[in-house]
Amino acid sequence: MGHDAHAEPEKKPGKLGLLGKAYLPAIAQGLLHTLGHIVKWDHNTLNYPDEKRAPFPGYRGEHRLTRDEQGREKCVACFMCSTVCPAHCIEIVAEEAPWPDREKRPKIFNIDMMRCIYCGMCEWACPCEAIELTEVFNIPVRTRAEKIYDKERLLSN
């Protein structure tokens, strides 16, 4: 017995009778329970992937690099996202932008989606609203290399 006065008294395993030892009544009970649910049709599972659940607001899925009104990436390669990223999974190489109104843009922008912990800090840190987490979560791939998303892939998400 525990020292705690309020502790529940320990349950002693009861002696099983012959019926109990056969387990059959318990199995039948379980099957009946399942059958009950089938009849009532109140199951919670979805027929994924044919049916999809609408993500909750603020769901953090795969990233997207956003575009400005002229269709160019908004990203200015400031490295804020890669600096804040706790998983160190953003790799950026900057270059001079070819446009007169912008100085810098990413030449390479890679996210290692397998290292990413989908924390959303990159989205928070971005001063240009250039990166955001979408509701996309179900992109299976065949090789690990495909899960390192480059700029084009992120722009098309």
Binding site: A77, C78, F79, T83, A94, E95, E96, K104
Partner: peptide, 9 residues
Amino acid sequence: FMFQSRVWN
């Protein structure tokens, strides 16, 4: 050095 790296890295 322009755009080569951010200094804190």
